[in-house]
Simulated assay, not measured.
Amino acid sequence: MTKDELETGTTLAPRFDANGLIAAVATHAGTGEVLMLAWMNAEALQKTIDTGEAHYWSRSRGELWHKGATSGQVQVVDELRIDCDQDAVWLKVRPQGDGGACHTGRRSCFYRAVEGGRLVARP
């Protein structure tokens, strides 16, 4: 595939890293809030496309992860985008359950800000 085909064509050709993964950013489809950054392998990406629900690859557990399968915080995908060189994806999702995305129970994994080199909780 040429650079032009990769960047402007209509063929989905994700470029996974050496570990077979691609970065996936999930934002809330309604508010635009960044919910989480996760990783997908080819199977997770395909399952996400096929089911309309977010699937990721858990690097810590070394397994496919259907977001919300145990917590109820399923992420229904409104739109899936891929960046210009097809090495990152952006999912616009509608969280189900209590609306949380973080394993800590928070709405977003990005719940702390860096101020003066320290972490400060933010809503």
Rank of each mutant, 00 (worst) to 15 (best):
S60W: 07
L45W: 00
E43A: 12
G30M: 09
G97P: 05
L37S: 03
A42D: 09
L64E: 08
G97R: 02
E79A: 01
A121M: 11
L37P: 01
G68I: 04
V120N: 00
T70Q: 12
N41G: 05
A26K: 01
R107M: 06
L45N: 01
W90Y: 14
Q75I: 02
R61E: 07
L6D: 10
T51Q: 13
V74I: 10
A101E: 01
A113R: 07
D85S: 14
T11D: 09
K3E: 10
M40A: 07
R118W: 11
V34L: 15
H66R: 15
T48Y: 00
I49T: 10
Q46R: 15
I82D: 02
K92L: 11
D78M: 02
D83T: 04
A42P: 01
K92D: 01
G30C: 09
A42G: 06
Q86I: 11
Q75W: 04
Y111N: 11
L80Y: 02
L21G: 04
G20I: 10
D85W: 13
G32W: 14
D83R: 04
V93K: 00
G116F: 09
F110R: 03
P14Y: 13
V89Y: 00
T70E: 14
R106Q: 13
T2W: 08
V34E: 06
T104C: 07
E115M: 12
A88R: 10
L35D: 00
V120G: 01
P95H: 08
A29G: 08
G62D: 03
L91M: 12
A42F: 06
N19S: 15
A42T: 03
V114Y: 01
V77Q: 00
R107G: 00
V114C: 09
Q86D: 09
V114H: 00
G100E: 02
E115I: 15
V25F: 07
R112S: 10
V120T: 06
L64G: 13
V77L: 02
G32V: 10
S71V: 14
V34H: 13
L12D: 12
L37T: 05
A44N: 02
L64H: 12
W57V: 07
G117H: 05
A113H: 02
A13P: 05
R94I: 05
A101D: 01
R107E: 12
Y56R: 03
Q73P: 07
C84Q: 12
L91Y: 01
V114P: 00
A13N: 15
V114N: 03
V34G: 04
T10P: 10
T48R: 00
A88N: 14
L45M: 08
H28M: 08
S71E: 08
S58R: 04
A88E: 13
G72R: 13
G32R: 10
G20R: 07
N19Y: 10
L12M: 14
A13C: 11
A13V: 13
Q75N: 06
T27K: 03
D78H: 09
G105N: 05
D4T: 12
T31P: 11
V114E: 02
E7N: 14
R81Q: 11
L80N: 03
W65D: 01
T104D: 05
G32F: 14
